[in-house]
Write a protein that binds this DNA or RNA. Sequence first.
RNA 1: GCAUCGGUAGCCAAGCGGCAAGGCGUCGGUCUGCAAAACCGAAAAGCGUGGGUUCGAUUCCCACCCGAUGCUCCA
Length: 477
Amino acid sequence: MTLTLYNTQTRQTETFTPLEPGKVKMYCCGVTVYDLCHLGHARSYIVWDVLRRYLLWRGYDVQYVQNFTDIDDKILRRAQERGVTMQELSDRYIDEYFTDLRSLNVMDADVYPRVTEHIPEICDLIQALIDQGYAYPAGGDVYYRVERFGSYGKLSGRKLEDLQAGASGRVSEAEAQKENPFDFALWKRAKPDEPHWDSPWGAGRPGWHIECSAMVRAILGDTIDLHTGGGDLIFPHHENEIAQSEAASQKPLANYWLHNGMVRIDAEKMSKSLNNFVTIRDLLERPTEPMVLRLFVLQAHYRKPLEFTAEAIAAAENSWNTINEALRFGSDYGKQLGWPDSPECQAEVQARFTTAMDSDLNTPGGLAIIFELAKELRTQRNVLVHGGKLESDAQQLAQVWATLVELAQVLGLEATAAGTSTESGPGDAEIEQLIEQRAVARKAKDFAESDRIRDELKAQGIVLVDQKGGGTTWHRE
RNA sequence: GCAUCGGUAGCCAAGCGGCAAGGCGUCGGUCUGCAAAACCGAAAAGCGUGGGUUCGAUUCCCACCCGAUGCUCCA
């Protein structure tokens, strides 16, 4: 069984072979921190988190690095608008990033480099490019000379002559200084009142693309195994990273380039600039369980576009209930069923899961297997609750459960506790008393009264379930 | 215009050469005073369109239609 991954660079699904057996060096392009993360970011980081978890599960030693872009035009502008420093603004949104992504059970990276902490390495790299003729200073800026890099465009499959200059409608005033309109800034001269660093080319700050090249080199080395990010980064960001890094080192920057598909809303890409985004915070405060969002994301293959709708989230909510109930089976009933402390996993099921995941991280395929396990557990749970004993062998069921927990963990799906009992409303004793009253009414065939009590509790989020034997159980919604 | 990726049941979504996974929803049954929950069962796509290759194509090739993304803000 070998892992295969779709490599944007070759446009093929390839067998994954790390540079060094058993070890994986992985770099993921992180966020520019001037706002809250939205669902599109969530998708990206969940997907790469799953790749990382899967590699770990397969026994690789994974070194995972993800940057924060903490200097940028948009950060500056917003900081000025709010009357705070750029660092105050970026620090705040880095904190917010951790709040949101950790709640989605995205594992922390091993290193979170920040641009402002790597200015010397960035300057060294720029100098090396100038020395080799790949870059030139102009009026306090430094530009990369795209025509000098013969394979420019190899990642995104485009040729310089095919590019349409200014197609995005954002032509900078610096355009005139460039030798070629596609030359891009490595270093930007500081405007008055902007944060800046001294450099051989004058006071300024780094361009967007150079940071990743410099930080990958500083932390992971010239060549890494996996470089990941959103599909909207392929051009120009990743193309430019390749041009910078490979010109400097004469070695490949990454052996595998992986990109996730965009989240769409109303058939359009969700993005900050289109202002059509839904933040992770919005969703979680609705409230949507974090695991529901994970499930929503993982039910689609990572490279395909994913349409966000309220219906889709509602569907994922129902799906998650099934898995969640099954995940809780062990802690709820394991002891009473005499399960061993750590039941064995079912190798055959693990193998099928592996086959799905090996094929370019087919999480929908993996989830189909998880649902098989979850449905069996849920069925037995209900049989147990309603009938008092299991229909299937308890020890075998323990293995089903252990397998489910393990595979769900690979996708970062973990059981969440039953309804929080902190909400207001009637207390347990009061509920029990109402149930008692209702039982009396039912016995007297006063169904109007019994239904009234049931509806009243229902309105307060208390669901009554009449049992076969005549008793009534209840739970909070 | 150029580049890339898609178009599979009511919705979401796998599969990619040999009689179309899974999830959500829908319908029927069991249970119930009625519900809810749960359980059992069912219906529902022949895979964008037109050609071609093949014993055989949703899967490969060609053309076309539609959509998305990118073409120096972007996960």
